[in-house]
Structure formats: structure tokens, C-alpha cells
């Protein structure tokens, strides 16, 4: 096997993506538990982790650009590096949105998401999407990546339910409007996290097949 230095750098890139993916799972898990338990301290743990995610994004971008410059990759190497470069942007956004959710939770003074608001369900669903998209990358598993892409519809449906429930909640108790809006924002952030996980899964498909959203690149 030639190009052992290049292969080492690709393995490093792989490890970095997996670590960044694990951090994304962790922040969503923290935000989601903090929401269901009204745990402000748990929510406060998200911001420092988000900073680590931001740093990871910069490190991985630097590594990818250096590999493009030094190795002029083609074929699967090119696909792996360009997919990584695109995926980190979505991962970084996932970190930001988990941080935004945590910030809202801290402003709720310990109130939890209402039992029937479907938000907890959304949180679980998006966490699964992020975990599976990173897993699909690690295992180069196209069917898992495609399952993630399909699962985004479940999250979107949840979001519609959340909206309806919150409208009912505001109608029943107009004084709680601010709380309902806070929950709506949280739900929207989870919905966006689902979109980012979908993007990640689409780049996983590309890195294996060379096809991105049915277009050969």
C-alpha cells in the first residue's frame, strides 16, 4: 500500500468527524434531557461543548483544505474529503441550535415541556437522526443514510403537531403565550436539526456513491 501518510491523514479526518458527530449527539441529548426535566444546570453544559464543536469545525476544515492542496485527491478520496468539508458545516449548525435550545430552557425557570406538546418526541427523533447519520458515515452505510433522509418526514410531522398543540395551549391559556412561543422556537430548532442531519446523510450517500441528491457530481 502506497501513500501511507495520506491514508493516515484520511484516518485522522475520519476520527475527527466521528468525534465531532459524538459531540453533536451529546449536546442534543443534554438539551433534550434538560427540556424534559426542566434542568437548568444540564442546559448550561451545552454552551462549552458548542465551543468545542466550533473549534472542531475549524480544525477539520483546515485538515481538508490541506489535504486538497497537498494530495490533490481524486475518486473516493476526493468524495470523502469534500463530503467531510460539507458535513462539518451542518454539524456546526447542529451545535449552535442545541445551544439556542439550551438558552431558551434556561429562560424557562425550570418549566418542562408540556406532556402533550410532542416536543419530547421531536427531540428523540432528531437525536436518532443525528446519531444514525454519523453512524452511516462511520460504517459507509447507504441504507442507514437513506433511512435518516426518510425519517426527516417524521420530524416534520411532529413539528406540525407541536404547532397545533401550542395554538390550542395559547387559546386555552392566553397568559402563557410567551411560554408557548418559547416552546415553538425550541421545536423549530429541533426541526432544523433534523434538516441538518438529512444534509449529513445526503453527503454520506455522496461519499459512497458519487451521487448527491440524484445528481452525479
Amino acid at each position: 500500500m502506497m501513500r501511507s501518510r495520506f491514508d493516515e491523514q484520511l484516518a485522522l479526518l475520519n476520527r475527527e468527524i466521528i468525534e465531532m458527530g459524538a459531540l453533536c449527539e451529546e449536546v442534543i441529548s443534554l438539551a433534550s434531557t434538560a427540556l424534559s426535566e426542566g434542568d437548568i444546570e444540564l442546559a448550561a453544559q451545552v454552551t462549552p461543548l458548542d465551543r468545542i464543536i466550533d473549534q472542531k469545525e475549524r480544525d477539520i476544515e483546515t485538515l481538508c483544505i490541506r489535504l486538497l492542496l497537498q494530495q490533490q485527491p481524486v475518486a473516493r478520496d476526493l468524495r470523502q474529503i469534500s463530503a467531510a468539508l460539507k458535513m462539518v458545516t451542518d454539524m456546526e449548525r447542529i451545535g449552535d441550535q442545541a445551544d439556542d435550545i439550551a438558552e431558551i430552557i434556561m429562560s424557562l425557570n425550570g418549566r418542562t415541556a408540556e406532556e402533550h406538546s410532542h416536543i419530547n418526541e421531536m427531540a428523540t427523533a432528531t437525536m436518532k437522526m443525528v446519531t444514525d447519520s454519523v453512524d452511516a458515515y462511520v460504517k459507509r452505510d447507504i441504507s442507514l443514510a437513506q433511512a435518516v433522509i426518510a425519517y426527516d418526514d417524521v420530524v416534520d410531522e411532529c413539528f406540525v403537531c407541536v404547532k397545533k398543540n401550542l395554538i390550542k395551549m395559547i387559546a386555552a391559556n392566553p397568559d402563557d403565550g410567551e411560554y408557548a412561543l418559547a416552546l415553538l422556537m425550541i421545536a423549530k430548532y429541533f426541526e432544523r436539526i433534523g434538516d441538518h442531519a438529512t444534509n449529513i446523510a445526503e453527503w454520506v450517500v455522496y461519499s459512497v456513491t458519487g451521487i448527491h441528491k440524484e445528481i452525479k457530481i
Partner: peptide, 20 residues
């Protein structure tokens, strides 16, 4: 472009990526 982004043959991939 297709050959250098997704070659059909393993041996092509091995050669163009510099692995043999």
C-alpha cells in the same frame, strides 16, 4: 470527470488515487 470522481473499476481507483 466521472472516472476521476467515481471510477467503475477498483483497479482504476487504485491507480488514480496513487495506491498502486
Amino acid at each position: 470527470e466521472q472516472m476521476f470522481s467515481k471510477p467503475k473499476e477498483k483497479r482504476t481507483e487504485g491507480y488514480i488515487t496513487g495506491r498502486f
